[in-house]
């Protein structure tokens, strides 16, 4: 295949990764931005979403779309519920102390991971996509007869991959509207800006924290539901999304939703393109290098605010 179509394919693959990464990283950024908790267990909520999606999808007979829709509802609820439980039973008891919560979320990580291994097992299992038609993409060239459009062999994508990109975009816009227009969004933003003053105006901060921790996990689980028909569900699948989410929120600026989305697109696309043309390992090395550069030259991230 020529370079042009090859590059477009890599960008499409990268866009799918970026879409899923934006959702996952948004959850992590939200939790850090509002609660100041570095949630090391975030990747496990992603994994939990994928595993629950497999369970739900395989236990519902009929068209795969039924199982997928059910999974898209149930998996975020389960992951969100587990996160709320973790918040109430663990994080609240350590008073959201930044250092203690890092250790606590490492504990939550291992509990979820080992429970998944004990119940789901070590196998990687696929979830059938709700639809998956192949779409051949056109390419063009200037030949002897002038401008020609043709369909190179292997140059195409699937309807499901395009759906993942579209669905993630809709969820991101919806979430932005929720944060900026709803009363709960206002309460969450006020809590983020000044926890003590939020309390002085009647906002139950610990309940807001539970909600935020649950929402962060639910976003990760929703991202996993979208990706699990492309990748397989596995009990160790949480590591990569966690690493990439940290890279994204550091580059975008901790707590900045706009920065998280821009950085997710940047990292997702570069990961896709470098993985296709070179190797996935090189993509991770470059992303990590980028984080190091951001930490040295702009520690608050691209869109983060400098601490006063």
């Amino acid at each position: 295949m020529e370079f042009g179509p090859h590059l477009i394919l890599a960008i499409l693959e990268g866009a799918v990764g970026a879409a899923v990464l934006a959702l996952t990283a948004l959850g992590l950024s939200l939790v850090f931005g509002i609660m100041r908790v570095v949630n090391v267990a975030h990747g496990e909520f992603f994994m939990l979403g994928a595993i629950v999606a497999w369970w739900v999808a395989t236990s519902i007979a009929g068209h795969p779309a039924l199982g997928f829709v059910a999974a898209a509802v149930v998996a975020p609820l389960v992951a969100g519920g587990v996160a709320v439980l973790g918040d109430r039973l663990v994080l609240k008891r350590v008073h959201y102390d930044p250092e203690a919560t890092i250790v606590a979320t490492i504990g939550i990580l291992y509990i979820i991971q080992q429970l998944a291994l004990m119940t789901y097992g070590p196998e990687a299992r696929p979830v059938e996509p709700p639809f998956n038609s192949r779409i051949a993409l056109p390419w063009f060239e200037f030949g002897e007869t002038g401008f020609e459009i043709y369909y190179p062999w292997g140059f195409g994508t699937t309807t499901y991959k395009l759906f993942v990109i579209g669905a993630a975009a809709v969820i991101l816009v919806g979430f932005w509207l929720f944060l900026s227009r709803s009363r709960i969004g206002l309460v969450m933003r006020a809590t983020q800006l000044d926890r003590e003053m939020a309390t002085a105006f009647g906002i139950p901060v610990s309940r807001v924290y539970s909600l935020v921790f649950g929402l962060g996990a639910a976003l990760a689980a929703l991202a996993a539901v979208l990706i699990v028909p492309i990748q397989q569900a596995h009990y160790l699948m949480g590591g990569d999304p966690l690493l990439l989410s940290f890279i994204v929120v550091i580059i975008g600026g901790l707590g900045s939703i706009r920065g998280t989305i821009v950085a997710a697109v940047l990292i997702g696309l570069s990961d896709g393109i470098i993985s296709v043309f070179f190797s996935p390992t090189l993509a991770k090395i470059i992303a990590t290098l980028l984080v190091a550069l951001v930490l040295v030259f702009r520690p608050q991230g691209l869109f983060g605010k400098k601490p006063a």
């Binding site: 009363r183 206002l186 309460v187 933003r189 006020a190 800006l193 939020a198 105006f201 009647g202 906002i203």
Partner: peptide, 17 residues
């Protein structure tokens, strides 16, 4: 709440009572 608008600050004030 410095990053909120004047209207939103007032809205926060109205939440409790």
């Amino acid at each position: 709440f410095t990053e909120l608008t004047v209207a939103e600050n007032i809205e926060v004030g109205l939440l409790a009572r």
